[in-house]
Design a protein around this nucleic acid. Sequence first.
DNA 1: TGTACATCAGTGAACGCGCGTTCACTGATGTAC
DNA 2: TGTACATCAGTGAACGCGCGTTCACTGATGTAC
Lengths: 198, 198
Amino acid sequence: MRYPAKETAARHQRIVTEASRLFRQRGFENVTVGEVMKAAGLTHGAFYAHFDSKDELQAAAVAYGIKVSHERIQRGNSKKDKEAYADRYLSRWHRDNPGDGCTMAALAQEVARSTPELKAAFERGFEEILSEKGGDRKEAIFQTAALLGGVALARAVRDERLSEEILESVRQRVGRSNFQLAPHPSQFERPKAEVRRD
Amino acid sequence: MRYPAKETAARHQRIVTEASRLFRQRGFENVTVGEVMKAAGLTHGAFYAHFDSKDELQAAAVAYGIKVSHERIQRGNSKKDKEAYADRYLSRWHRDNPGDGCTMAALAQEVARSTPELKAAFERGFEEILSEKGGDRKEAIFQTAALLGGVALARAVRDERLSEEILESVRQRVGRSNFQLAPHPSQFERPKAEVRRD
DNA sequence: TGTACATCAGTGAACGCGCGTTCACTGATGTAC
DNA sequence: TGTACATCAGTGAACGCGCGTTCACTGATGTAC
């Protein structure tokens, strides 16, 4: 049957939103088109009324995800307060919730191996964040790299103590003008982690 | 037929070596068991005489790869010269040759989504590098995160100029005691990149 | 305003391909006697 | 030292499953008249 244009657009956005979340959680390769559609409340066959291919969905999910995930981490935080941003980014909560976390921290390496189109989408999102951060551009790039690397490392390691040591080590050098040690309370902790740690 | 134990051990090592290289280049999911065996000069059926599963090969490849790839970047470099190490790590050559580059810069995010066994292998390799680096442990962790993040970002972006700007931005702040700007010649450039850029 | 009809986002079965894994078989090596 | 035989890393065909994608079909919406 034919559906109202408004509802269709809403569903299209839901597909992108859910894909973006699932891809961050499990990577492009480990999420099927069927799973994305189910998460969006549809059956897999309808997918091709919205996208030409899974590749195209990946690009849409990355373009959308980078911007939105950055805003979610930023939310409620003063734009100028880089220190607090780094503390949030390097929190245990962020480490354990990639689905709600930074897209670059979850998918940069997979994007690196993918198509030029996907890299272009990644790049646009990255540039947008840079211009939003303002200030010294090279400093912002460096900070992004250090934060991304810190969270990726903290997630890739099995031992909880080492994982926290990684977060702590990066926290101490980023967002504090690079010469000052830190007390950082990390008030940015929420319950119910989506990732099981052992 | 039965083969001499020595040759068998050599072939086993070749499987791990080739797997390690291929996984860095294209990720775990995009490399088939058959491709690995072909690269090692064998047919796919023999794989299960060496490993129980692809998962097991991944762990072996990561354990071997982290140590060896770090040594390759370090090679010919004074162990104390962190500045030169950072310059090498953040070179265009390293960005364009993941197969011969750092395992963590290529696979950390995929490991993060994988099994506890794989994380444990990653962790052992990481700890080994840390103890080899010596000096301030937290500083070494921070440096690893920043370098890894820098290369991952530089690879995930399409525009060559932006990619170099990323490498440059991280180079300026890492390995130089964090307060000094840098001329850095980056003498570590070699011909023939394995990755096509457009 | 009412009626006929084209549209097109849905559904769910089916297709085809690739991949991890299994299996029957081979035959040089290494060991038992 | 020679002979019989167990071993086991190889080969290559085959299996089974999952996934991206296609397709015939549906029926409420929106448009033409």
